[in-house]
Amino acid sequence: MATGVLQFMDQFKWRTATLICDSLTQYPGLSTFVITSCTNLRMLQQSRRSAYNFFNLDLNSAVTQDYTTFLQQAKLQSRIVILVTHPKIMRDILLAAYAMNMTDGEYMFLAAMSTSVPTRGPITWKFQDGEDKVAFEAFKSVITYSNIDPNWREVTDWTDQIASTASTRFNLTLPNEHKYNDFAISAFEIMLASAEVRKTVICQTPWSNFW
């Protein structure tokens, strides 16, 4: 995602942007995706700071529902705002931006997402909550993009095993959204890959080498 953001900025010759990163502590299983995405983007920008100027703003939507202060800062810093958060929070931020006249074409919002996690849902203006009309207008100032989605069905067995282990060994019941925790999935993949390597090495090594 990080490289894609900078390439996208290059396409339009944008050099200054405000990056708003949400820690999403209310979504423990999803927050790791967002935190990793923001960290990678900031590190890449720092390595190319002669070409790009980022203003970094951190928020935690678990405790902050008024996004006016963050948007006011962004308004004073740049006309490009990169949002990395949950789609629902993103919509709330854009509704606030609409109220501040930041969605009239003078500012552009990039909805950057690393992947589409099943429990996170798509980036959309439509929630059927009475504010769809305003949200639709606000989203006209948004460019959304993401990497190619992984095939989550291929790891369903893994996520089910993670949830089962948490339940049987630690008496911990994982909600569905917590099953898609990239740290847990990565740990499982590492152990699985290590086991496959060990199996291959053992099968290809003459038994005489073990004595």
Score class of each variant (00 low, 15 high):
Lys179Trp: 02
Met113Cys: 08
Asn147Pro: 00
Ala184Pro: 03
Ser141Thr: 07
Pro87Ser: 12
Met108Val: 14
Gln72Trp: 01
Thr115Ser: 10
Tyr98Leu: 04
Phe188Trp: 13
Thr156Ala: 09
Asp157Trp: 10
Asn171Cys: 04
Thr144Ile: 11
Gln77Tyr: 03
Val117Thr: 14
Phe139Leu: 05
Ala74Met: 01
Leu71Gln: 04
Gly130Cys: 11
Asn151Gly: 01
Met102Leu: 10
Val155Asp: 14
Met113Ile: 07
Tyr180Ser: 14
Arg79His: 13
Met108Arg: 13
Tyr180Thr: 15
Met102Arg: 05
Ser116Gln: 12
Phe136Asp: 07
Met113Ala: 03
Ile80His: 07
Ile93Asn: 02
Ala97Lys: 01
Asp160Trp: 00
Tyr107Thr: 02
Thr159Asn: 04
Gly121Glu: 06
Ile89Cys: 06
Ile148Trp: 12
Ser146Pro: 00
Leu174Phe: 04
Gln77Leu: 15
Gln161Ser: 14
Pro150Asp: 11
Arg169Lys: 13
Met102Ser: 06
Gln128Leu: 12
Phe183Asp: 14
Arg153Ser: 15
Ala111Trp: 03
Ala99Trp: 03
Ile148Cys: 07
Thr159Val: 15
Thr168Cys: 01
Val84Met: 09
Asn181Met: 05
Pro150Glu: 09
Lys126His: 15
Arg169Glu: 15
Val134Gly: 00
Val142Gly: 08
Asp129Leu: 04
Tyr107Cys: 01
Leu110Gly: 08
Ile123Gln: 04
Phe139Gly: 03
Leu95Ser: 01
Ser116Tyr: 02
Tyr107Arg: 00
Thr115Pro: 00
Ser78Pro: 08
Glu131Thr: 15
Thr173Ser: 09
Arg79Pro: 01
Thr144Ser: 15
Ser114Pro: 00
Phe183Tyr: 12
Leu71His: 06
Asp104Tyr: 00
Thr124Ala: 11
Ala163Gln: 04
Ala111Leu: 08
Arg153Trp: 05
Lys133Cys: 03
Ile89Asn: 07
Ala163Gly: 11
Met113His: 10
Lys140Tyr: 01
Asp149Phe: 06
Phe109Asp: 01
Ser164Leu: 11
Phe170Ile: 09
Lys88Asp: 11
Asp182Phe: 04
Asp132Glu: 12
Asn101Lys: 11
Ser141Gly: 10
Arg169Gly: 09
Val142Ser: 08
Gly130Trp: 06
Val81Arg: 08
Arg120Trp: 07
Asp160Val: 05
Glu137Ile: 08
Pro118Asp: 10
Ala138His: 11
Leu71Ile: 09
Ala74Gly: 14
Glu131Met: 13
Trp125Tyr: 14
Phe188Ile: 09
Phe109Gly: 09
Ser141His: 02
Val142Lys: 06
His178Phe: 05
Gln73His: 13
Leu94Pro: 02
Ala138Tyr: 09
Lys133Arg: 02
Gly130Tyr: 10
Ser114His: 06
Val81Trp: 05
Met90Thr: 13
Ile143Leu: 14
Arg79Trp: 00
Asp104Ala: 13
Met90Asp: 02
Asp92Val: 00
Trp125Gly: 05
Ser167Gly: 00
Ser78Gly: 09
Trp125Ile: 00
Gly105Pro: 06
Ala163Arg: 05
Leu172Met: 13
Tyr145Trp: 15
Ala166Phe: 09
Lys75Ala: 05
Asp132Leu: 02
Pro175Thr: 09
Trp158Leu: 15
Val84Asp: 08
Asp132Met: 08
Tyr98Val: 02
Glu137Thr: 11
Pro87Gln: 08
Ala163Val: 07
